[in-house]
Amino acid sequence: MKGLARQLAALARGDAAADRVVPPAGFTVRLTLFAAAAMAFLAVFALALSLAAGRLADRWGEELARGATLRIQAAPEEMDRQVAAALRVLETTPGVSGARALDDAEQRALLEPWLGPDIPVDRLPIPRLVTFSETGDGYDAAGLRLRLSAEVPGAVLDDHARWRAPLVAAAGGLRLFGWMALLLIFGAMAAMVTLAANAALAANAQVIAVLRLIGATDAYIAGAFVRRFTARALAGAAAGTGAGVLAVALLPGTGDAAGVLTGLGFAGWHWLVPLLVPPLAAATALLATRAAARRVLRDLA
């Protein structure tokens, strides 16, 4: 790690005279630039997927932890009494806090996506909802159901965990998938840069022979190639990252209601995360070229 940091510092300082020993042209220039740009573009999307999946998992997880709902179905004249009974039961249940009945406006907001605005909630035979939160180690759902069946016969306990837990697990899996894709992208970039570096080193066998004849060390020769390829990878990755961020920004979103696909993108400080892609691509190219140069120089010795 120290060696890598030292090389990155040397790269930043540059060595114009030493860098000129590597011929400037060749197909490896275009290959490295294109590979770095394409991989950086894909890396931005993988990052967006990971971060979006992470946000979704966190949101679902928070909602899961936030609580559960009681659905109370009763005749209109019984409704208030059952709601009051349900609240009493919840207030005396260990592990439950913040129990409250949703008012008409809140119920209307919940139904609006399906039934449209201006629903006469007070005149429709719709159930009343009571929400509550878990505290500490949580509550005994089976015990609560027993008490409710005895004291509030019209109440049904809706435990969100049953249907949210698999979704949270899926979102977590998707996040992991995104990070794995990112690793594979950088691995593929390392492989392509290695191929390009091998080709460049093989094509420049005469350059290497001349440099050795005049006493250049392997570190000097490798350094010239490493700096050249790292700079190319950095430039390509910067272009690819810019294009990727622009493409993500132009994706249609759906705001707070965004899911994994419709909400693919960055939020808040996550927009800064893609800035890590070019230096990571440069570090990948540096390591790949250094390993390739050492191998080729050893073989040519």
Partner: peptide
Amino acid sequence: RDGVAAARRRIGVVHQDCQFL
């Protein structure tokens, strides 16, 4: 190999085929 490089910096060589960059 570094030792060989150091020695070559003290020996000037003119090759028959005069390789250049």
